[in-house]
Write a protein that binds this DNA or RNA. Structure first.
Length: 245
DNA sequence: AAGACACGCAACCGCAAACAA
DNA sequence: ATTGTTTGCGGTTGCGTGTCT
């Protein structure tokens, strides 16, 4: 479901010319994720463009911000949007419109992008179909109110709500999965550090990340969101909390 | 088995607001 | 007050994957 990294440029392997200084676009490689994650985790964010520079990423600050906000932030929820959350989205969208960031702010762990995608790909379609059906019945042309929609939502979305116990969530940085999966702690991801448990996350095509976070604290930090690590564990990691300002 | 189509998601783009110099 | 920079937001696109025919 997730695209393989096309790694928009052909310069990544360090052919040090001016091309190498060009800004990268396209999907993020695990190595870039790692750099960004470590940079923000240990040093926080002054400005996003400085983050990009300090992490030696050939990305715009804007791109770094987006990647962090939508994917790398450890406080993101990894499970699918629940029925309850969907009801909230529908109800808020009807009352305030497409203000996705506002809607996201009411739903901890969800991003505006995620909600927007969810709306565009699923809910809107269903509402339109419902509205059309309503018109065909000679009913009002307005979209069905949230309360009515709930019934349909319930009927169509039950499968989404029961996310089984997934050891490593689908949406989780590959390098983090590698660490958790026994990669770094046992001497780094050398050899075949199979990202098998991350099947649908970004597979790096050949340029395997080194996962060279030489600090086992990182393992705890990266995984705290899913494994219910106590928050005070983070306090043991100097500078770790700077990122959350 | 193969091609067409639909779906879901990551990321880009353009714009506007906020802020700094 | 003006100009330049950064950040945040919403709309949109591109593309990998799953499903259907």
């Amino acid at each position: 479901m997730v695209r393989k990294p096309s790694h928009g440029d052909t310069t990544s392997a360090g052919n040090g010319g001016t091309e190498a200084m060009k800004e990268r676009k396209g999907l993020w490689s695990p190595e870039e994720d790692e750099r960004l994650f470590i940079q923000i985790t240990y040093h926080g964010v002054s400005t996003w463009s400085s983050v990009a520079q300090l992490a030696r990423l050939r990305r715009s600050g804007k791109s770094c911000r987006l990647r962090w906000m939508n994917y790398l932030r450890p406080d993101l929820k990894k499970e699918p949007i629940s029925k309850r959350e969907e009801e909230i989205i529908i109800s808020l969208q009807q009352s305030i419109g497409n203000r996705w960031s506002t809607i996201a702010a009411t739903m901890p762990g969800r991003t505006d992008n995620e909600i927007k995608n969810y709306w565009n790909s699923r809910i809107r379609k269903r509402l339109n179909a419902a509205a059309k059906a309503g018109r065909d019945d000679g009913a009002s042309t307005k979209p069905a109110p949230a309360s009515e929609e709930k019934l349909e939502v319930e009927a169509t979305n039950n499968a989404d709500t029961e996310a089984g116990p997934v050891p490593i969530p689908e949406r989780f940085p590959v390098f983090a999965c590698q660490l958790i999966d026994g990669g770094i702690a046992g001497g780094g991801g050398s050899g075949e550090n199979t990202p098998s448990t991350t099947s649908s996350t970004q597979q790096n095509s050949g340029e395997e990340s080194e996962a060279s976070v030489g600090d086992s604290n990182m393992i705890h930090f990266i995984s705290f969101d899913d494994l219910d690590y106590p928050a005070d564990l983070l306090m043991d990691l100097p500078g770790a909390m700077d990122a959350w300002e």
